[in-house]
Design a protein around this nucleic acid. Structure first.
Length: 805
DNA sequence: ATGTAGGTGGTTTTT
DNA sequence: CCACCTACAT
């Protein structure tokens, strides 16, 4: 080993070192929060390339977000550039001028890392499909070309709705397209075809879904389009059926690395198996010569089961990928249990919390830091005083600083809806903040319009996009006209785009209205001349000018239209940047990027601001100070999860993720009352999670805005220790234990689980849970078609009904 | 063909 | 509370 490589191994602990030095065969790295897993991943890739002469061309690295991919690539560049620095300049990296450092990084990026594939599952496999999709032979005879469109959630839902209402003639009330889309998505993520789903269906609703799935697929194919799930599912089918294609990718990707393995789903797992093992059964697969699979994850941070992620895939890794050369099972598992992020108080709180979960891998997180401060509980009157209490805290913690360090704070919440009140308070106190998530840049109307033009230009079968822009800007093409042309297209079985281009038929079918259509086809045909030799940026410019989109915006002269123009300029900038980054920047590639990029992937343009985001979005990040807000039963944990032990455990993992983001301070906040959607106030019960953190790690504190609030009064009679004692026995028990304990006397009526009652607004219901005890209880009541509600028996307009009546 | 008023229904989390 | 959709008027 060269001496110059030593920095690669420096500053690593024993386990990290083992992981980094792993070269061939399967390895599972169980990496707790803040244990340096990104470091292990990047250093290992560098070690493969630098010290084991492995060609980056043979490496596939999968990350959970585009941002993580970017960061990992950047870190890799630096690691490899450090070696180069030594060879070229004969001096260590840190002594080089910045300009030389950048030059070296560029060299590394272009020469060494050019062929390395690193990105999300979706980004990587859409790329694979752009090469090979035309080799796929569908059993139902469906076809796609490499110019396929990628439909986002809205586009796909449009399609599903069309199918449900027009093709299947179903009642929208009973068969909500959203729910059907969700069910189809679920099936696709479990690697099920519509036929397989049909076989499994044992009731009418499931059969409807299977049927919708089948029709939806046909419809996607007619549009030459794929949804997000297809980007993973289609490669599975392609690799299964085509030996040549599978062989190619199997031989190419000899070293596969996957981050956040606990959040992979069945389809992604299939993909990985196919590429890693070729066509052999992974359990019998023995030829690890020159190959490896290296996965990193933490089952305690699995928070995407709603997206069909399954952390049991992580748990099964060693079983799935065996290495007969190593009889010792332990040789394919490394645990990173040293936490370098959080103070020990924070870590202990997180550990205590997560111990309440039954389904876990045995793992502990050891602290390397000082005790630090206690966690602070802020009990507030309502959501407004919660926001005020948080801003007060922000201000007071920054008081001593000349320059406020807003970037050291994150405010996390369970649902996006919670952000508004928080924002209002931050605005009031002029505290700079950045909200992550929300409306994607690429989801803005004007941006989607421009993108739709691009999509139609390279994929004229894409009717969802075609119909989006056919009358944008206004060309006098209305609903009835479109209806007629669509009918004609269906009758003749000719793509809509071709119908539009048949001047004679158009004239005959719609008469006077054909003027607008002709205007549209002339524009598009003109633009088509540029497609071959023009990059996405310039083509966008042409689209916006020639269509009159820009001049329309200019003419209206409102503030809003000004915004829109700016966004379109930003889109063109993004296209330019894409061209620069990809050298052969083709339009298909740009469209993939547009479909798969979220705003979270962008650099924050206000670097010194408070971060607001969902707990889900916070995974993988770290902050000095973290607020975890809305800790109330029914909000966090969500009312949809409270009844189901496995879902409740996932909420608990989410809380665990939140707490472990913090380095120095954690604030837990809850409101005693919360307005649900503006209107009525509802009394709340503090989240069970608060009570699962040991008393001596929490410091209760009065929120500064409300003088009268009590100090953790509810806390005195909490009853959750029993819950904890039972938690190791089975997943079902803890909740049952809680149920019994929580039933208690209340004013007027002694409510019990199973009691039936009548609510003036929601009608008849049954109590499925009772939270709290003594005076302060809340009832979880299930109302037939109205779903479940959390009610305060002292306030809600309810009365008991006789069991016999 | 287009604009707007009024009703309706919906909130987890996301690539 | 708000975004979306439908129905009606222009």
């Amino acid at each position: 080993m060269h001496q110059t490589n030593s920095f690669l191994f420096k500053s690593l602990n024993n386990e990290q070192l083992q992981a980094v030095k792993h070269v061939y065969g399967p390895l599972l790295v169980v990496a707790g929060a803040g244990s340096g897993k990104t470091k292990a991943l990047t250093h290992r890739i560098a070690n493969l390339i630098q010290n084991n002469s492995i060609d980056p061309y043979n490496i596939l690295a999968v990350t959970f977000t585009n941002k993580a991919a970017k960061e990992m690539k950047a870190r890799l560049e630096v690691l490899l550039a450090q070696e180069l620095a030594f060879n070229q300049f004969g001096q260590p990296w840190s002594t080089l001028k910045e300009i030389d450092q950048n030059q070296l990084r560029t060299n590394v990026s272009q020469d060494r890392l050019h062929d390395l594939w690193i990105g999300t599952f979706h980004a990587l496999f859409s790329r694979l499909l752009r090469y090979d999709i035309e080799k796929y032979i569908d059993p139902e005879g469906l076809k796609w070309t490499r110019q396929f469109s990628i439909y986002d959630e809205t586009d796909s839902q449009t399609l599903v709705k069309e199918i449900v209402t027009q093709d299947m003639n179903l009642d929208l009330k009973r068969f909500d397209p959203k729910k059907i889309k969700r069910a189809i998505s679920n099936a696709k993520n479990q690697c099920l075809t519509s036929n397989e789903l049909e076989k499994k269906a044992d009731n009418h609703f499931d059969r409807v879904i299977a049927d919708a799935y089948k029709k939806y697929r046909i419809s996607l194919s007619k549009n030459n389009a794929l949804d997000f799930d297809d980007l993973l599912l289609l490669p599975v089918f392609l690799l299964r059926q085509n030996d040549l294609v599978r062989d190619y990718w199997h031989k190419r990707f000899k070293h596969i690395l996957i981050d956040e393995y606990q959040d992979t789903n069945r389809t992604q797992y299939e993909l990985i198996k196919l590429i890693t093992t070729g066509n052999s059964d992974p359990k019998k697969f023995i030829n690890w010569e020159g190959r490896s699979i290296f996965v990193v994850g933490d089952a305690d941070q699995s928070i995407y089961s709603f997206r069909a992620a399954d952390f049991r895939i992580l748990i099964g890794f060693q079983e799935d990928f065996q290495n007969p050369l190593n009889n010792n099972e332990k040789s394919s598992l490394i645990k990173l249990e040293e936490n370098y992020r959080s103070s020990s108080n924070i870590l202990n709180a997180a550990n205590s919390l997560i111990e309440n979960n039954a389904e876990r891998i045995d793992k502990v997180l050891r602290s390397t830091k000082e005790e630090g401060e206690l966690l602070k509980l802020l009990s507030c009157d309502d959501e407004i005083s919660e926001a005020e209490a948080i801003t007060n805290k922000l201000k007071s913690l920054n008081n001593s600083n000349q320059q406020p360090k807003w970037k050291n704070f994150a405010i996390l919440y369970r649902t996006r809806a919670q952000s508004r009140v928080l924002e209002e308070s931050l605005v009031r106190w002029r505290i700079p903040y950045t909200i992550f998530g929300g409306l994607r840049f690429y989801d803005r109307r004007e941006v989607k319009d421009a993108i739709a033009y691009l999509k139609v230009l390279i994929n004229s079968d894409d009717n969802v996009s075609l119909l989006r822009i056919i009358n944008v800007p206004r060309r006098g093409i209305g609903k009835t006209t479109i209806q007629k042309l669509n009918d004609l297209s269906n009758k003749l079985n000719i793509p809509l785009w071709e119908v539009l281009n048949d001047k004679q038929s158009i004239e005959e079918t719609i008469g006077r209205s054909s003027k607008g259509i002709n205007k549209f086809t002339e524009l598009m045909n003109d633009l088509l001349c540029y497609v071959e030799n023009t990059g996405p940026a310039q083509l966008l410019q042409l689209i916006l000018e020639k269509s009159g989109y820009l001049s329309d915006l200019l003419a209206s002269g409102t503030e809003e239209s000004e915004d829109r123009r700016n966004n379109l300029q930003e889109l063109i900038n993004a296209a330019t940047q894409f061209e620069e980054e990809t050298e052969n920047g083709n339009i298909e590639g740009f469209l993939s990027t547009a479909a798969l990029t979220t705003d979270n992937d962008k650099e924050n343009n206000n670097p010194n601001s408070v971060t607001l985001m969902t707990l889900h979005n916070s995974k993988g990040l770290e902050f000095q100070n973290v607020f975890i807000t809305g800790l109330e039963q029914g909000l966090f944990p969500s009312y949809r999860s409270i009844d189901t032990p496995s879902l409740l455990e996932e909420e608990r993992r989410l809380c665990y993720v939140g707490i472990t983001r913090a380095k120095e301070r954690v604030f837990l906040t809850h409101a005693r009352e919360r307005r649900l959607w503006g209107g009525m106030r509802e009394a709340t019960i503090p989240s069970i999670f608060i009570s699962e953190i040991p008393d001596d790690l929490i410091d209760g504190e009065l929120p500064q805005t409300s003088g009268a609030s009590l100090r953790r009064d509810w806390h005195l009679d909490r009853l959750t220790r029993v819950d904890r004692n039972n938690s190791n026995e089975s997943t079902n028990k803890p909740v049952n234990a809680v149920r019994k304990l929580y039933s208690g006397p209340s004013k007027g009526k002694n409510w019990l689980i199973g009691d039936k009652l009548i609510h003036t607004k929601f009608g008849k219901g049954e109590i499925i849970h009772i939270f709290g005890s003594g005076e302060k209880i809340s009832l979880a009541v299930k109302f037939g078609d109205k779903g479940s509600k959390i009610l305060d028996p002292r306030l809600a307009p309810i009365r008991a009904i006789n069991k016999n009546s």
